[in-house]
Design a protein around this nucleic acid. Structure first.
Lengths: 174, 174
DNA sequence: CTTTACTTTCGGTTCCTACTGAAAGGACGG
DNA sequence: CCGTCCTTTCAGTAGGAACCGAAAGTAAAG
């Protein structure tokens, strides 16, 4: 994996670029792409060389990927260095990512909305209208949460099926 | 709406903060929050004052919200200024956002993966493994796209129902 | 046609995040 | 217990996005 094929380069660059659009650090995303394509675990040193980034940068990035649970360290006999490998199950990977994203992007707002609705003083000017708006918004966040909670308890395969089913449901929408 | 209640302030600040986590500009998100809570359309000037941001900043932000289709200008009799109001249907709003997000975050990768799989030279070193990885990844992106395409053709109410159904499906997963 | 009210564009500044290189911090082998 | 190998931490820097205020642009009113 020391030498990258044109295709691998393209994939890694693209993934890095997309990462930024998903709010993920470019280097982090690139490292993930590299590890995902690599048949064997790689030491940090090699990652740094292959991607031409500072060794320290690799360290912090790997750390983030580890916390997210999509990269882990493995040990190779006769080598003192840590080697890193990416999770290969794509569906499971995105399940993780989505769960984390929900925690960061959905839950806080859902709670804020609940609190707001509880705190809302009916005597306040325009309380009527405000309540209406907040409730509409809260409805959405509650629904998303509910759906997510059900899905996360299912194994990967089932989720895949569920998506397929949802796709078919179009035909008899009633 | 010139004077904000504590609750409204809280909502606007929170929404702005969340915006940054969703990759949306803080000011843009705040303006949206303000308009969403406002019973009547507001002129840019008033938005700027209420949020304490530069008038020009409001201009560009409003523009972005307009392009996304979640804010529009309306005219008030006897007033030369443009007044802006937010879309109030939350579900429709997120449908828009998700669609745009998909265009930016899913489609390009899906295409890249297709191209890569087409270009993949079987004689290349490790082509076997690379193909396997790419295919797994592509499978996910194709599934997401398929699901989205079906959903976007449905009216808001149906999507809401669909989500509810998905939630129930847990009980008989077969 | 000119004035006035309003909006947008644009160059410069500020702020924030990502990245580097150097130094400090483990841990293993001898 | 010292030296070596590897990893992490940290302060400083560079690059980019957001924001401001001034200037230019547009359109309605008189």
């Amino acid at each position: 994996m020391a030498e990258l094929t044109a295709l691998q380069k393209q994939y890694i660059l693209h993934w890095g670029e997309m990462g930024t659009r998903w709010g993920i650090n470019r280097t982090v995303a690139q490292i993930h792409a590299l590890l995902y394509l690599s048949p064997k675990a790689l030491p940090a040193e090699e990652i740094a060389e292959t991607l031409s980034v500072a060794r320290s940068n690799v360290s912090t990035s790997i750390r983030e990927l580890e916390t997210r649970g999509i990269v882990r360290a493995v040990h190779v006999l006769g080598d003192r260095r840590e080697h890193y490998e990416s999770m290969k199950d794509v569906w499971e990977m995105f399940r993780l990512v989505i769960e984390q994203r929900k925690r960061r992007e959905i839950d806080p707002t859902r709670e804020m909305l609940r609190r707001s609705l509880a705190d809302l003083d009916p005597k306040e000017a325009g309380a009527e209208y405000t309540r209406e708006r907040l409730q509409a918004m809260a409805g959405f966040f509650e629904a998303v949460t509910e759906l997510h909670d059900h899905m996360k308890s299912l194994p990967t395969g089932t989720v895949r099926k569920l998506l397929k089913m949802g796709a078919k449901m179009k035909r008899k929408p009633s």
